[in-house]
Design a binder for these strands. Structure first.
Lengths: 252, 252
DNA sequence: CGGCTGATTGATCCCGGTCAAATGAGGTGG
DNA sequence: CCACCTCATTTGACCGGGATCAATCAGCCG
């Protein structure tokens, strides 16, 4: 459903993030903000925003809430292949391939801006910085996807869960969604299991191990990182793939 | 080292592949061919074309040979996150992020075309079909990366290796690198293990299982698929993510 | 209160890792 | 041509991380 009124501040995560990837010209920023405000939408928790096989003809930019990309095997095994956080966009350029090869579900209530393909194309055509910002977003997304491959392929359960927490924390930070050493963690253990390729039972035991070693507190849908350095080192976490600092600006 | 002379036919895989993703205008095709011919390079087997942390300022389009993208953890664990086959490009737009977050190694001798960033940018700026073709390539690459996450997260060893073989076969087919039901497989079992997240020992035993059940023959660096349907079904392989057929052209 | 979903625990099993050694296949130098 | 080295493949034995199955517990809602 469209939002009738909204002030510009809901757009902040998206603008902040894109601007960190590529400094946006004031005109590009204004044009994008205008387009986003016109396409504001809400969705409840646990909805499929779009499913495998569905046609794509717009871009959605998430403004608040968590989503996940996932795929399901014929026999029901599910794998979450990525999370989508505020400021990130769902399907930048995906319409070039016409249909989705995976599904996107909301994990919490979500506010997002939907921009139709033609509109999006003309926004990007009008401003190079904007086009580059969205390209950078795709590139970072690819890098995250690669890191997930390593996580699943070569890290043990404890490292794997620790790594996921580090990544989530560092991805939420630049959009202002962490508070000191804690952040929201509005997902079930089943979701975390599906994201880490573990069974729910073993994920639960792994969480207990992380708690027992004093690395984290996870309660009431809130993650508190008690010892970030220790967590990063048990995760073998090295954040460069997230491009958090001066994301490639030196060539820009 | 640059190739002194070369006829246009070496470019065929790349042109064929890009053209399948987006029909290229004749002018775009000619301009791209010209740029590629000027930047032809060779590399031997087992070289790192580029390493994690290296600056990027060009695009490389592979014309023959196999490469892989990989990352290594501090303690030496290695994960191959993707293969790169003839017709595919290494780093389209990657220069936007300045540096590599992973490494690319040759698995065989390789011929590729290197195009400097500025040149590449102006090629894409001059022709929309070309820009879209490279965007599609990125999108397909992302989809493959996601499928690898599922492969490592939710498929058992046998399914996983079968899936990898299905994917390789289907990626090689459109560039004319399969011969009936067989294709080259110029990699060691260590490489296959690093790509599937298995140990070499277990990968070896998994191969034997695939051979014993009559699905494949793998000998002398050649893979023969004896029963493609059975292989696909043990792999739970569904090729839509590869966009092999009319890759998104209906919206183009 | 009953039903539902999510978190937790216990018991058992087996897939796949690890360690170690053997075998094979080139390649090279004497 | 053979001795030797290196690298890839294969095999054997053993172990343990994580899956599976099943039950219990804790909130939450109607």
């Amino acid at each position: 459903m469209p939002l009738s009124t909204a002030d510009r501040s809901v757009l902040e995560p998206a603008i902040r993030r894109l601007n960190a990837l590529r400094p946006l010209s004031p005109e590009a920023r204004a044009a994008l903000e205008y387009a986003m405000l016109e396409g504001l939408q809400r969705a409840g928790a646990g909805e499929d925003l779009i499913s495998e096989g569905d046609p794509v003809d717009s871009v959605r930019i998430v403004l608040s809430g968590w989503l996940c990309r996932y795929k399901t095997l014929e026999d029901g095994r599910r794998q979450i292949v990525n999370f989508i956080f505020p400021g990130e966009s769902c399907d930048s350029h995906a319409f070039l391939l016409s249909t989705m090869d995976h599904s996107i579900a909301t994990l919490t209530p979500v506010v997002y801006a939907e921009i139709k393909r033609a509109r999006f194309d003309s926004l990007l055509a009008a401003d190079r910085s904007l086009a580059e910002a969205f390209l950078c977003e795709m590139l970072v997304n690819e890098a995250i996807q690669r890191e997930w491959v390593i996580n699943l392929g070569r890290r043990a359960a404890l490292e794997r869960v620790a790594h996921l927490f580090c990544e989530i924390f560092e991805r939420l930070r630049p959009v202002g969604m962490v508070d000191g050493n804690s952040c929201a963690m509005p997902v079930t253990q089943t979701d975390l299991a599906d994201a880490t390729g573990l069974s729910v039972v073993h994920l639960n035991r792994t969480l207990q191990e992380l708690r027992a070693s004093g690395l984290i507190v996870l309660r009431d849908r809130t993650l508190v990182i008690r010892d970030i350095d220790a967590l990063k080192s048990t995760a073998l976490f090295s954040p460069s793939y997230l491009r958090l600092y001066r994301g490639g600006r030196e060539h820009g």
